[in-house]
Amino acid sequence: MSQQFYVSPEQVMKDRADFARKGIARGRSVVVLGYGGGVALVAENPSPTLHKIGEIYDRIGFAAVGKYNEFESLRQAGVRYADVRGYSYDRSDVSARGLASVYAQSLGTVFTAEQKPFEVELAVAEVGATQAEDHIFRLTFDGSIADESGYLAMGGKAEIVQQKLADTWEPGATLAQVLKWAVDALQAPHQDGSDSSNGAESLGAANLEMAVLERNVVEVRGTHRAFRRLGPDAVQQMLASGGGD
């Protein structure tokens, strides 16, 4: 029987957390912001097909950073959870809070029980009837869950992006305005860095993935699905309009 060295639980957890944090910090950031007409999800993502943002259910959207295969399997599991729940009860009984707590449980279990923790951080957003009723949940690799008010940044140099959002974000903005705030925030780490090599590079529509959860979508569009992806053309148009305030 091979002898096992004693490692304190604190050390095990710390090692796992450091490992996950490193993986998440390697990627690019994603921001989620509430605005007057709903919730906007914006990601820095050069790929037009490998999405970091997805639809879960009628009023619920999903955004993630980290390892693609890990958060993609979580997204699909979330869609299954929501669809089964909505089918067996009613569409209105699927809530972001329920989904977020299921995600938290899975992430927590994987963090302690599996060979390696998931290197992902998730956001679950739900659009409500008014901006005060919107919910944005942050789920981290260890299963912690946080109810964020109004906006959230994760992945990459998340603290810088989050700080930038904290400085600019206000409730009741228009979509073009929050898009501008989002792009400014996503660019903040580039400009902040000591290297000026890519500091001047600005984020264009080609490098942005964007979707919105629209408020009152039943009345406005006659559909129950609030999630709508915005193509590069629409994003470009909005960036050009500037969202001047």
Partner: peptide, 16 residues
């Protein structure tokens, strides 16, 4: 009908 509606929406969400 309900099952079929969910089936189509489910596919669309999973596959994109």
């Amino acid at each position: 009908v309900r099952l079929f509606q969910v089936e189509l929406e489910h596919y669309e969400k999973i596959e994109g």
